[in-house]
Structure formats: C-alpha cells, structure tokens
Amino acid sequence: MAQRTVLVVLFDQVQSLDVTGPVEVFAGAERHTPGTYRVVTASPAGAPVRTSSGLTVVPDGPLADAPEADTLVVPGGHGTRAPDPGLTDWLRAHGPRARRLVSVCTGAVLLARAGLLDGRRATTHWAYCDRLAREHPAVDVDPDPIYVRDGRVATSAGVTSGIDLALALVEEDLGRDTALTVARHLVVFLRRPGNQAQFSAQLAAQTACREPLRELQQWITEHPGADLGVDALAARAGLSPRHFARAFRAETGTTPGRFVDRTRLEHARRLLEDTGDGVGQVARASGYGTPEAMRRAFVKILGTSPAEYRRRFRPAPAP
C-alpha cells in the first residue's frame, strides 16, 4: 500500500482544533500502521500562523512547495471571513487534484469561494450554515449533520466533528481495527454517524433559568421511558400543568412535548447505533412503548425506519 499524503492547509486565525483534531487522527493511524500516512502542513507563504486562540503553529513549508495531496484538509476559523485571495486561487487549482477534499467547520466557506462545492451537498458549523447558503446558492447546505460525504468531497460541522470525519476516513482506508485503536487512544467514540445532529436535545433547547425546570430537563434525558406527559412533568416540577407548559416554553424556547420527542428519538438512535438490543426493546427503553410508535417517529423525523437506520449507521462488528 502506497503512503497517502494528508495535506492540511494553515492560515492566520485558523481554529486550532480544526487542525490538530484531524492531524492527531491521521498521525495516530500512521503510528499504528507505519507507512500509511504522511501528514504535511502548509501555509500560503510558509510562515508561522497565529490561530484564533492565540497559539502559533509552524507549517512544514509554503503551499507552493507542498506535495500533491491524497487527502486535502481545509480547516475553519476566523480567518475564513476575509481569506487571502491567493489561498482561494490555490484551492481552486489544487482542490480538484486531491483524491479526497475535506473541510472542517468554516473551511467549507473557503471551498465554496473556490467553487469546489457547487452542486454538492455540504455542511458547516451550525452558526454559519445560513451564511453559506445565502452567499453560495449553488451549494446544497444541510445544517443538521455533523459531517456530509458527497462523492470525493467531505465537509464537517467543526471542532470535534473533524475528528469524527477523520476517523471515518481512516476506517475507510485501513479498516475498523485501526480506526478503533486511534479512537481509543484519543478517548473518543470510534465514529458518530455523519447524519447525527449537531445538537443534542439538551443543546438544541435553551437551558431553563429556574432550577426546578433545569433539573427537570436533565431528568427527562435520563428517563426517556418514564411517563413524560405534561401532567406528570408539571407535578414533578411542582407547578400546575398550564403554568408548567407556559414556563417551560418561555425558558427553553420549545414545548415540553417537542423536548420529550427529541429526547426519545436521540435515545433510540443511540441505542440502535451502540447496542444489539432488539427494536422492541429499544422502543420500550426510549419511551415509545411499541415498535410501531417508534417506527412512525423515525419515518416522520428521519425519513427511515429504525431497522434501516441501524443497518446504515451502526458500525459493522470487528472481523
């Protein structure tokens, strides 16, 4: 197997984790299986760059002297807001040559400026999805997944999702055993499915200000199989059902029912991805009661059945 060159582009005000996350994954895979990856970093002029958090990173050299990349990684950061035109030109010329073109966070903005995402489905950090869609209407922006693969181009939501995407690429290249070893070394999950939402139920809703409601939010996520009707939740919070529903929505930005629905769906997805529990068992544990009720929720929200979701997104067992 020929050694693959992973070229990571650096620029001033880059997000440090967008760089170091994927670098650690590919470097870890090289340590596990020597001769598989050569990780190279390069900046437009070959000069050190200062990240958005104040760290200084010294590249291996200038982009003009960088080797041809098997996998070209473009991180994000504040520097994507007004990028060096020379960097955009370099990406436009060299991006199509790489076997795989990868962006992390707002690195997708740089790819879009270079015309490399036109006609493709892509994602970026949730806070920048509207901007990406508005400024680049030829890009099919999906704000929900943590990463998206569209042919040879892969885009991710940023920060830790860059690690998820890099692990998926290592698994594609070298198999699950190597990817699992790297993940264990980094103390992360082997792989979150790319279509996993950028927000968990807790993050998607605001955290309530009042302690009873804040504690209730946490209790709901820990007990998805319990009676989570408005009357039961109101009693647990010590409020009347009407007062509870009004206060919950005012403080979290969503209704109790929607919060419960998202919590149960998230719990069921996690069980389908991470366990071998039967669909009926997952339905009961997640509060759906019956497999048919869970199937209706999955089809409505995800457009697929629980069985098909598991088939597509649960990692295959190690050989």
Results as ranks from 00 to 15, higher is better:
R131I: 09
L87C: 06
A205C: 05
C209F: 14
A205W: 06
H267R: 10
T56R: 13
R192D: 14
V39D: 00
L190M: 13
E135I: 05
V14Y: 02
D130E: 13
T124F: 14
A108C: 08
L213W: 10
V23F: 12
I301F: 12
G21P: 03
P62F: 03
H267M: 12
A64R: 07
A247T: 09
V14M: 00
R121Q: 06
F313V: 15
L101E: 01
G289N: 13
D118W: 04
T207E: 15
H78K: 14
A234N: 04
D164C: 06
S286I: 07
S16Q: 15
V153Q: 10
F248A: 04
A247Q: 07
R264E: 11
P62C: 02
P212N: 11
V39A: 00
V19C: 00
D130C: 09
T252D: 03
L169C: 03
S16D: 08
Q217A: 15
E135W: 06
V58N: 10
D18H: 01
P44G: 07
Q13T: 14
L63D: 01
V153S: 11
G278M: 15
R152Y: 09
A2K: 06
A66W: 00
R246G: 12
H223D: 13
G225K: 13
V39R: 00
G46M: 04
H185D: 15
G257M: 12
A82V: 08
E292L: 05
A69M: 01
R192L: 14
L190T: 13
G115P: 01
L213D: 02
I163E: 04
R246T: 15
F189T: 13
V39Y: 00
P96G: 08
A237R: 02
G175E: 07
E215K: 06
A307M: 15
V25R: 03
L116P: 09
L116H: 04
A204M: 09
A157D: 07
D261L: 06
T290R: 11
L180Y: 14
P319L: 10
R31Q: 05
T80N: 04
V187Q: 13
D227A: 08
T56Y: 10
R191A: 05
T275G: 00
A201H: 11
Y37Q: 07
A93K: 03
L7A: 01
D118T: 09
P212S: 06
L302G: 11
F298K: 03
Q13C: 13
G175Y: 12
P75W: 01
A250S: 09
R100Y: 08
E308S: 10
V188E: 02
